[in-house]
Amino acid sequence: MADYQINVFLDDEKRKAIEAAGLADRIATVDGKPAVQVPMSGKEQKKLVKGFPDLAFDGDNGCVLPEEAEAKLLAIIGEMKTLDVMKFAIMKLYNPLAGKAPRAAMR
């Protein structure tokens, strides 16, 4: 079992995307709402927290990504047709240089 997970709560459109990826059997009920849970390791969780400092985790070590990041994650799930995507998705979601000024050109 994963150390952490990303909860992706499903509306009708997101549910259709998950079903189209052949993952309808992975839909669960989280806090009374339909969702899929994307597993991630502790190392991936640390990178996400660096990239999204406001990310909050519940008592079950689950979090919800900001809307734009969640859309990227859903697109990756749709392409790869699995929920085990974090090794790949972390590169798309976590930008270690975000918010850092570019270095001045060396002369």
Rank of each mutant, 00 (worst) to 15 (best):
A2M: 05
A2Q: 12
Y4A: 08
Q5N: 11
Q5T: 07
N7S: 14
D11G: 11
D12C: 00
E13C: 04
K14S: 09
K14D: 13
R15V: 04
K16E: 10
A17E: 01
A17Y: 00
A17V: 03
I18E: 07
A20I: 00
A20L: 02
G22A: 07
G22T: 03
G22Q: 01
G22H: 07
R26K: 12
A28N: 09
T29I: 08
T29G: 02
V30W: 07
D31S: 07
K33G: 08
P34I: 05
V36C: 01
Q37P: 11
V38F: 03
V38A: 03
P39V: 11
G42W: 12
K43Y: 14
K43C: 11
K43N: 14
K43T: 13
Q45R: 15
Q45A: 15
K46I: 09
K47C: 13
L48I: 09
K50R: 15
K50M: 15
L55G: 04
L55T: 09
L55Q: 06
D58I: 14
G62Q: 06
C63K: 08
L65T: 02
L65E: 00
A69C: 11
E70M: 07
K72F: 11
L73Y: 04
L74R: 08
A75M: 02
I76F: 05
I77K: 04
I77E: 01
I77N: 01
G78M: 02
G78W: 00
E79K: 14
M80I: 06
K81C: 10
T82R: 05
T82E: 03
L83T: 07
D84Y: 14
D84G: 11
M86I: 14
A89D: 04
I90S: 10
M91Y: 15
Y94M: 10
A98M: 00
A98V: 00
A98C: 02
G99R: 01
G99E: 09
A101I: 10
A101P: 10
R103Q: 11
A104Q: 08
A105W: 13
A105G: 02
